[in-house]
C-alpha cells in the first residue's frame, strides 16, 4: 500500500519522460518507414547487384540489436568527427532499425499483390514506375498495415534502450527518480505500467485492424 501512495508524486517526471519516448518513436517511424519502403522496392529490383546489396543492408540492419545500433551512433560516431545529441542519435539509430525491419514487412506486402494485376498493368502499357505507384504500393502498403502497427509498438518499447545514451525518456526518468528516493520498485513498476498502458491497447488495435482488412479482401 505504501508503494501506491508515492505514485502521484512520480507522475510529472514520468510523463515528461513518456513524452520524449513517444516523440522519438514517432520520429523514427516517420523517417524509417519510407526508408523501409525504398529498401523493399529495391529488394525487388531486376538487377542482381542491387538486390544483393539491399538484402545485405537489410540483413545487417536486422541482425544487429537496436541497443548496439544506438551505441554505435552515440558513442562510436564522435571518433569519426560526427557527434550527435542523444536525441539525434536515438532517432537516427531507431529510424535505421525501423527501415531494416519494415523493409521485410513491406516486401511481403508488395509481393502479396497478385501478379496478374501487374501483368494487366503491363499489358495496358503502364510503366514499371506507374505500376508501382498506382497498383502495387497502395495495395501492398494496406496489407502491411497490421504488421507495421505491431512493429511500431516494438519501436516504442525500444525507446527504453535510449536510456543507455542518456536520453531523458521514460526509463531514465524512472531510474533517476528511483535513485533519489531509493524506492526503485515502486517507480519502475509505475513506469512499466505506463508502457503497458500504451502498448496493450495498441496491440488490441492491431488485431482489430487485421480483422477489418481480412473482411475487405
Amino acid at each position: 500500500m505504501n508503494i501506491l501512495n508515492d505514485w502521484p508524486s512520480f507522475l510529472p517526471g514520468l510523463l515528461a519522460g513518456l513524452g520524449v519516448s513517444v516523440q522519438v518513436a514517432l520520429l523514427s517511424l516517420l523517417i524509417g518507414i519510407p526508408g523501409g519502403l525504398l529498401l523493399a522496392i529495391g529488394a525487388g529490383s531486376k538487377k542482381k547487384p542491387v538486390r544483393t546489396l539491399i538484402i545485405g543492408i537489410v540483413e545487417i540492419g536486422r541482425g544487429t540489436p537496436a541497443l548496439v545500433v544506438l551505441q554505435i551512433f552515440y558513442f562510436g560516431l564522435p571518433a569519426s568527427g560526427l557527434t550527435l545529441s542523444s536525441m539525434g542519435a536515438s532517432v537516427v539509430a531507431l529510424a535505421a532499425t525501423t527501415a531494416a525491419y519494415t523493409s521485410e514487412i513491406l516486401r511481403g506486402g508488395l509481393q502479396a499483390v497478385p501478379q496478374g494485376e501487374v501483368e494487366a498493368a503491363g499489358a495496358l502499357g503502364m510503366s514499371r514506375r506507374d505500376t508501382l505507384r498506382f497498383i502495387v504500393i497502395p495495395q501492398g502498403f494496406r496489407v502491411a498495415i497490421p504488421s507495421l502497427i505491431g512493429f511500431a509498438i516494438l519501436i516504442f518499447q525500444a525507446t527504453s534502450l535510449a536510456y543507455t545514451v542518456a536520453l531523458p525518456e521514460l526509463l531514465s526518468q524512472a531510474y533517476s527518480i528511483g535513485s533519489t528516493t531509493f524506492n526503485y520498485l515502486s517507480v519502475l513498476v509505475l513506469a512499466g505500467l505506463m508502457y503497458a498502458a500504451i502498448t496493450v491497447p495498441a496491440s488490441w488495435l492491431t488485431c482489430r485492424a487485421e480483422k477489418r482488412l481480412a473482411r475487405h479482401l
Binding site: 497478385p114 496478374g116 494485376e117 498493368a121 499489358a123 495496358l124 503502364m126 510503366s127 497498383i135
Partner: peptide, 28 residues
C-alpha cells in the same frame, strides 16, 4: 496497339470501376 483480356480479369481491386478503365488512359 495491343489490348489484353485475362482469364482472371485482373481488375485493380483498390480502384473503382471508372478509375480502373481511366487510369491507363491518363498514365499511358
Amino acid at each position: 496497339n495491343v489490348g489484353m483480356v485475362f482469364q482472371s480479369f485482373n481488375l485493380f481491386p483498390h480502384l473503382n470501376v471508372l478509375r480502373n478503365v481511366s487510369i491507363a488512359q491518363e498514365r499511358v
